[in-house]
């Protein structure tokens, strides 16, 4: 069964670099997903919006070094609001190599660096949503 994926995308915290996440937003829309773009927000605001908008997927971008602190906080908020178990959480950006594993351990379903291609990102998003949907 194919569902139209509803995705919430934006910048984690006040990082200024938004070229990557806008590129991903376009990719998702071209792949038939519904995209809600929130701009810049803090973890609690993002989790709250995800709950209100009842999205299937949350994708955040961080190129400013705050991926571990704010990324971990986002997952904690998502667990607290009980949306983590049925919502896919993706993070992309510029990270030191060892942090990819740490972000996965923190709970992100997918972690993407600039090396990731369009097909990898979209395939992962679709598979993860299907796997995590109740």
């Amino acid at each position: 069964m194919t569902i139209k994926i509803r995705a919430l995308l934006g910048k984690l915290g006040i990082d200024v670099h938004n070229r990557g996440i806008i590129t991903v937003a376009e990719m998702f829309r071209n792949a038939g997903m519904e995209v809600i773009y929130f701009g810049n927000a803090l973890p609690a605001q993002i989790a709250q919006t995800a709950l209100q908008e009842d999205v299937d997927l949350v994708g955040v971008s961080s190129l400013g070094g705050a991926h571990l602190t704010l990324g971990t906080a986002l997952i904690q908020e998502a667990r607290r609001l009980e949306i983590f178990d049925h919502t896919v959480f993706l993070i992309g950006g510029v990270f030191p190599p060892q942090d990819t594993l740490r972000l996965k351990e923190a709970g992100f379903d997918g972690v993407f660096t600039p090396e990731a291609t369009r097909s990898e990102i979209i395939a992962a998003a679709q598979e993860l949503v299907h796997a995590k949907k109740p």
Partner: peptide
């Protein structure tokens, strides 16, 4: 750093996790 560029003090909620980054 990003909070300084975006004009928030280091103890502002918007600065959390980003103080001294980049």
């Amino acid at each position: 750093d990003l909070p300084t560029i975006q004009m928030y003090d280091s103890d502002d909620p918007w600065a959390a996790g980003q103080v001294g980054m980049s």
